[in-house]
């Protein structure tokens, strides 16, 4: 089977995917797809399988059954050596931020480009542009510990988008933020999406997707409970 096939118009496709942890089902027979340039919310209560679903997309987990395709990559069939190259097509906004505490904001964002082998001059230009997009240009030399939760979240978003990946995944991106800051973060996602990036946001915060006009996929105890547009 091909590891990579970019003929599909679908950016993400799950086909009858099941994932178990120690005989406990995390996801059961999940089938859905996300088109290129679409912004979709994955919602459901805690433990419903949202994070597992995202992990399957960036190949931190392997499905026990079914197939997953991401921008033409069959993630279930990927060799370990190909996983880094799949992940370079995905910007990830982690729930726990995963910022490098001993590196400045600039260095944190630059890391996504260094990993891709981008030259120093280009790194400088793109990192400042990306920080400007999340309104953190002035915090480039600060260390993460000195930033508020909302600022740290925006650094993570900046790092996720700096390499301009075709897909951005966000796991509870507003989990620890006040409503005003959460609105700001959502505006950034909308801006990125407007430029053609496919965005998948996992959240249990109803206010984020209510009346957004976006597709919402609802999970309940690992099963796909509903799929509708708000």
């Amino acid at each position: 089977m091909l590891e990579f096939d970019d003929r599909s118009d679908m950016m993400i496709r799950f086909d009858a995917v099941t994932k178990d942890y120690d005989n406990q089902t995390a996801l059961r027979d999940i089938t859905f797809s996300v088109g290129r340039g679409e912004m979709v919310f994955i919602t459901g209560p805690s433990g419903s399988g949202k994070t597992t679903l995202l992990k399957l997309i960036y190949s931190a987990e392997k499905p026990d059954a079914g197939t997953i395709s991401v921008d033409g990559w069959e993630t279930g069939q990927l060799k370990e050596s190909s996983i880094p190259f799949l992940r370079r097509n995905i910007g990830i906004v982690f729930q726990d931020f995963r910022l490098l505490q001993n590196k400045t904001v600039f260095e944190n964002v630059a890391m996504a480009l260094r990993i891709r082998g981008v030259g120093e001059r280009e790194i400088k230009a793109r990192v400042y542009e990306s920080l400007k997009a999340v309104n953190l240009r002035h915090k480039a030399d600060a260390f993460p510990k000195r930033l508020s939760g909302g600022e740290q979240q925006r650094v993570v978003i900046s790092r996720a988008i700096v390499a301009e990946p075709p897909v951005v995944l966000a796991d509870e991106p507003t989990g620890n933020l006040d409503p005003a800051t959460a609105d700001g973060v959502m505006r950034i996602f909308k801006d990125i999406n407007a430029k053609g990036t496919t965005i998948l946001i996992a959240t249990h915060n109803r206010e984020l997707y209510q009346n957004s006009g976006r597709r919402v996929i609802r999970l309940d105890m690992g099963a796909l409970a509903s799929e509708d547009r708000t």
């Binding site: 995905i90 996504a112 990993i115």
Partner: peptide, 16 residues
């Protein structure tokens, strides 16, 4: 370890 895990998630190759 945390730093390395983050590198992996960002798409770093083993040689990096």
């Amino acid at each position: 370890n945390d730093e390395i895990e983050t590198f992996k998630l960002l798409g770093a190759t083993p040689s990096f």
